[in-house]
Design a protein around this nucleic acid. Structure first.
Lengths: 173, 173
DNA sequence: TATTGTTATACTCTATAACTATA
DNA sequence: TATAGTTATAGAGTATAACAATA
């Protein structure tokens, strides 16, 4: 653990590896904790879930609506799941499947006025939770991490993180 | 208080809120991506999962073994899940339930020699993946974030993130 | 023939509750 | 009575594949 200073040349690479691993473990611990708090509160306060909240958030940003396929892509989940979530939200009167102007196979999924009201109410509370949770960092630190994460995000973009374990073709294997 | 001042104050708070939210979204995006890559590779390369890997990691650190309850606490999941994972790993010959010296209800779950070999092999590869994924940051940046996360982690410790949505008694928040 | 979305199914991960065998 | 672990069940959350309607 605290062996850092006395390393010789040979173990330096290994120490570097451990540095990355320890960083990852800590990052994961923090993220998981925040996520759990948010999930729990979303359920207890609003009787909803993270994917449902996420779907509403996607629609709120796109007043013209989104197709099921676009929702699927933005939420990074496969189509069948989107159908299920939209079914639920439509049942609650928060979203509607409107007809698509140019493709009769597709829909323009949009927020209803009630859906928009409900989402905004939740989003405001949600944002308050996030603010509290990240109060551990000063504004300067937040900015700093935000920028560091931008770098990391770019780097990570080159890794294959497709949801499916197996893609149709093209898998180099 | 002048109107202009009020507006200014309000928008400052709002700006601060958005800062935290944007930070969280980016943090979540990065973490999710890393996790997905790791999960996919763990499955495709070793036919295993993150919880199974995690359980082996817990045992590797504790040569004397751990009880089911201790595993449950360290992995932050409830008991029934641990039973399932240990069943699988025991079936594969990677861990054993040995008898507990002083409590006949409990076990000392331990790695088998094969389990230790297998875990070490996986852990080395796994660490390489992490190193690659975090190559986006310089060693200095890694250290920096690691320390910032320590601060955040401390702050987060005061929030209730119990797995269960509903606990026996009162919410302390 | 390709694509949009639905249906049906399955698997992972996790929680709860009732149960057993000790303590 | 309380605790360690198991069993059975439930419910998110996600994936795959076969299918219908339309392009």
């Amino acid at each position: 653990m605290a062996l850092a200073e006395t390393i010789d040349l040979e173990s330096r690479v290994e120490a570097g590896d451990h540095q990355a691993l320890k960083l990852w473990l800590r990052l994961l611990a923090c993220t998981t904790r925040v996520e759990t708090v948010i999930r729990n509160r979303l359920r207890s306060e609003f009787g909803t879930t993270l994917p449902r909240f996420d779907l509403l958030a996607q629609l709120e940003r796109e007043p013209g609506g989104l197709t099921m396929g676009e929702l699927s892509a933005r939420m990074m989940v496969t189509g069948g799941n989107v159908t299920g979530i939209v079914d639920q939200l439509e049942g609650e009167g928060l979203v509607v499947r409107n007809e698509h102007p140019s493709d009769r196979r597709a829909f323009r999924v949009q927020l209803t006025p009630a859906g928009r009201r409900q989402f905004r109410r939740m989003a405001a509370v949600h944002e308050g939770w996030i603010v509290d949770l990240f109060e551990g960092w000063s504004p300067t630190q937040k900015t700093q991490v935000h920028e560091l994460l931008a770098t990391l995000k770019t780097h990570l973009a080159s890794f294959d993180a497709t949801p499916a374990p197996r893609r149709k073709n093209k898998d180099s294997a």
